[in-house]
Design a protein around this nucleic acid. Sequence first.
DNA 1: AATAAGACCAACCGCCACTGG
DNA 2: GCCAGTGGCGGTTGGTCTTAT
Length: 323
Amino acid sequence: MGHHCCSKQKVKRGLWSPEEDEKLVKHINTHGHSCWSSVPKLAGLQRCGKSCRLRWINYLRPDLKRGCFSEQEERIIIDVHRILGNRWAQIAKHLPGRTDNEVKNFWNSCIKKKLISQGFDPNTHNLLSTKKKNNNNYTKSSIFTIETSLSSSSTKELVSMDMIKASLAALSTFPNYANNMSMPQYQTSLSRLYGSVCVPTTTNIIGNSNFASTIDYNKQSTIINEKCMWSVTGFETPQHEFGNGHEEMKQEAQVQFEDKNCQEEVLYKVNDLHEFNHDGRRIAENVTFDEGSDFDFEFMDSELVPRGIFTNIDSIDQLAWDC
DNA sequence: AATAAGACCAACCGCCACTGG
DNA sequence: GCCAGTGGCGGTTGGTCTTAT
């Protein structure tokens, strides 16, 4: 059972031949396509109008961009999909020269698998592991883009709110990162969506073996903007334990979130456990949050942003707010 | 080298919304 | 309001190519 226009005539199906393409292109270039159902007859094609339309839109249109998707296009697809879901036509509108079919195929063949391999549910963009946890406040965790720069090298990866929590916790252990690296400067920036909005945070740590004398803990505050601030407010002295060929270091830190808009301050406790091997290289890290903390990690995503705290909202964010 | 399995993607199918008679 | 025709969309299929065994 085909489309209405197809049922009336005997039509060819399957792949288009170059001759058919040529006929269709020639016809549309000279006459346009005011009514697709009349195109096959006028163009001398034994296809249904719907098939002609699809062939033109997905393959023959002159403004199509063919070839591999760029990293930026991929990120746009992920970001817009997070907001719109499987609305491929809408997503494709954000990618000039790409069709809904192309975006859909790319999603199903590449992005979906990539997200799954990174531990995200491609439908909800939540962490797969957190979905299994009951009584978890963070099941609506969103995907963010994190950009990390180490001197000349730069990497970008998708992260979840859970990972953001981990990197916030890592603020408390920057001295250890710095010690393990020979880089003169460690810089990390966290940004929502593709790198331009919402959490323009930058923390610079000057690496030095004698970190205590060179790091100004005040600079570990992560300023979201003049109204919001993350900061590490207190440290417990690291406790070292030596075992069979490795060393464990336990450290507790207190992280404060301050929202000056509503004079709200929230504290939560981070427990950080590091394992080092015999030559001092870190081999494992386990960051946990105090179960008793009532801090809502969705705060940043669901409360702060709609209240207009973040500035520099780009078109994708605007789209999110419009929906 | 042969075969199976998996990946990719163009095209099809079925549904829905809109429009004009 | 009803209905047929049409455009548009998302899900699915099936043919072809690539990779693994």
